[in-house]
């Protein structure tokens, strides 16, 4: 055995799960929502999905070349940003809106901070909010879903949350749609962004991520739980003015946000207790914006605000180091405590 031996310090084995595996699992988990969106919105949705994904991948490649760093396309993060951005856009988005959003997401959202792992805010949400503020008309022209083969022209329509906001502002009362239509919301038969229409498809992807242990339960559970509790509290106070928890849960981008955006590892806390705080913060802010804010939907803003609070949350949720807990100790005298 005269060949070269590898010398390294322990450990000498690895779990085998890599960053690429995680990213690939997230892409798989997003597929049901993508497929259903194409079913409901047809080629328009497919086009937006392709434009955003290609746009993000191209921007990432250009950034790598310009900054003279190794190509990072294979880590899969740019593709996820592209898909998530597309799912956050209306199906009727013009091509330039999708491309501009992609460039913003990858450059301002990620690469200026140093690429994957260094961005403080979720890149897809940064782009969505930039687009929402810059191009409010294009970003809120929703079309009703027209399932493939029905041969109908798309009709413009308000999202359930938009309808609710307008109705409450004008009449102080919930619209009729807020009391019914849950089966439509569940399967996605409502107006909205490409990816937020079907609660079931998003839920399926989210459960897949939990099953594969790519994400942990803390953030989705605390986010959704706090929306149900906090939103439900208002509903109990005045059910004519405030929608019930199920309406909150199934409409808008809540499920997409809770399973796919609020669980973005880079921009959320690393400790279990920090994740719970993060999720509750997202839930409370989402409900506040939905019920009292200027925008009908608050998921994007809620997650971005909590992204900003993440370093602070991490700082105050450091786990108690083993051996520093008060415990039963037959030999410890009070003097040893400090």
């Amino acid at each position: 055995m005269d060949n070269q031996l590898y010398m390294s310090s322990s450990p000498h084995v690895h779990s085998g799960e890599t960053t690429q595996d995680i990213m690939r699992a997230v892409i798989y988990a997003l597929l049901p929502a993508c497929v259903l969106s194409i079913y409901y919105f047809g080629l328009e949705a497919l086009l937006v999905l392709l434009l955003c994904t290609a746009g993000c991948l191209t921007t990432e490649a250009v950034c790598c070349v310009l900054s003279k760093r190794a190509m990072t396309l294979s880590d899969g993060s740019a593709a996820i940003t592209g898909i998530l951005l597309a799912l956050n856009l209306p199906a009727s988005s013009p091509w330039w809106l999708a491309l501009f959003g992609s460039i913003i997401a990858v450059t301002i959202g990620k690469q200026v901070f140093g690429g994957l792992g260094h961005n403080p805010f979720n890149p897809a949400l940064v782009a969505r909010v930039v687009l929402l503020i810059s191009f409010p008309v294009q970003m809120t022209s929703w079309t009703s879903p027209t399932p493939l083969g029905h041969g109908l022209d798309a009709l413009t329509a308000a999202t359930p949350l938009g309808e609710m906001k307008t109705s409450v502002m004008l009449t102080g009362q919930l619209p009729a749609s807020a009391h019914s239509g849950f089966s439509d919301y569940l399967i996605g038969n409502m107006a909205g962004s490409i990816g937020e229409v079907s609660a079931l498809a998003v839920l399926l992807g989210g459960l897949y991520l939990l099953k594969k242990k790519v994400i942990t339960w803390e953030i989705p559970a605390s986010y959704l739980g706090s929306v149900i509790l906090f939103g439900g509290m208002f509903w109990l106070i005045d059910s004519q003015r405030y929608p019930d928890p199920l309406f909150h849960l199934l409409t808008g981008g809540l499920l997409l946000g809770a399973f796919f955006m609020a669980t973005d590892m880079v921009t959320t806390p690393i400790t279990r207790s920090g994740m719970l705080i993060f999720g509750v913060g997202c839930g409370v802010i989402t409900v506040l914006i939905r019920l009292f804010g200027g925008y009908p939907e608050g998921v994007s803003f809620a997650i971005l605000l909590m992204n900003g609070a993440t370093p602070l949350i991490d700082r105050y949720t450091r786990p108690k180091v083993f051996g520093r807990n008060p415990y039963h100790n037959i030999n410890q005298t009070p003097a040893q405590e400090n």
Binding site: G114, M265, V266, I270, F322
Partner: peptide, 15 residues
Amino acid sequence: GPCIRCGRCVGACPL
């Protein structure tokens, strides 16, 4: 590669 802040090391650390 770069740390993606997944927190797996935090969950695994026995200390």
